[in-house]
Design a binder for these strands. Structure first.
Lengths: 177, 177
DNA sequence: CGTGAAAGTTTGATTGT
DNA sequence: ACAATCAAACTTTCACG
């Protein structure tokens, strides 16, 4: 009896843009929570915490990496130790809804090191930007250069952050309902 | 002649809340840029890139850690591999300006794992929150639980993110003027 | 999944500039 | 004060049970 070749069927566009969700058990979620908080632990330590041998932990981490779930490992700096450092949130609306216009705007955000985050949103604003500078003066100068002097920015509003209450990239790992 | 005991004077409050800015040379900034982007490299690789021996690199990294500049090392996950994942930016204004009210609000944000970031801002809004959920439904449910049902939230506005154009915690390491 | 041996990495003492 | 070298300790890797 011929078997329907589900597994070997050519990749659909969706598989490339949005990878197939990986399935995770309780140990996977425990491990991922641990490394999201501190990626500096040894396989031995991690195995100890989740009740697995170092090589079983390694096999799982390798699986997360090859699936693309574990994208990278980064060092997080404390801005307070760098001296005056200010974070600002900026809401931006562009002029027209042309595709190439938005692409150009995105490329500028990607190229500017002081832009830490940029989200495309729906509603009366088009983008939310988080940028980091050495104080109010530089913050205003950067917003002016990026947004005021930009011909396609219709309007923007800068919300200077007094305080960073919670900052991270941790994703919640929901158990399947 | 008696020496003014500047170095041995007791720590001021400011020294505890805002640590003294660390001084960085070109190699420090190069190293920190490298580990902010990828903390998985070996001391040998890092040394190769900046032109130093592994142990010289290690001594510098240790210095960043003990000064608190290098706060931690984390694994970054790609939300697309987890299936439906949605990021929303929420602007929140609280009712009154009481200290304990704000503290309670902050503690809630710190306790909720789906709240990824929270900044205290100035202007017509008090806080900007970034939260991550499994879709529009959960996003609205979370905003409702955190903000609508909260007696002290005067008003809030949710900006659903269609696209995460740039996401990171990288700090710009400006050279001293 | 666990074990264990080989390869690679980090650590710290020592010496030199 | 800071860098390089080297050997010991630890960590990661991977073939096998």
């Amino acid at each position: 009896m011929p078997v329907t070749p589900i597994e070997s069927s050519p990749a659909k566009t969706q598989d490339i843009c949005v990878p197939r969700p990986i399935s995770l058990d309780d140990i996977d979620r425990h491990l991922l929570d641990l490394v999201q908080d501190d990626a500096g632990r040894s396989l031995y330590e991690l195995g100890d915490e989740v009740g697995l041998s170092p090589s079983a932990v390694q096999r799982r981490l390798t699986r997360y990496r090859t699936s693309g779930l574990l994208a990278r490992q980064i060092a997080v700096l404390d801005p307070r130790v760098l001296g005056e450092t200010m974070t600002s949130v900026v809401l931006v609306a562009l002029d027209r809804e042309s595709e190439s216009l938005h692409t150009a705007f995105r490329d500028e955000m990607l190229a500017e090191p002081r832009v830490q985050q940029c989200y495309g949103i729906v509603g009366q604003w088009d983008y939310v930007i988080v940028h980091v500078t050495a104080g109010l003066r530089e913050s205003r100068a950067l917003s002016q250069r990026l947004f005021l002097d930009h011909p396609n920015v219709r309007r923007y509003e800068t919300l200077p952050a007094l305080e960073s209450i919670k900052v991270g990239l941790t994703l919640p790992l929901r158990a399947p309902d």
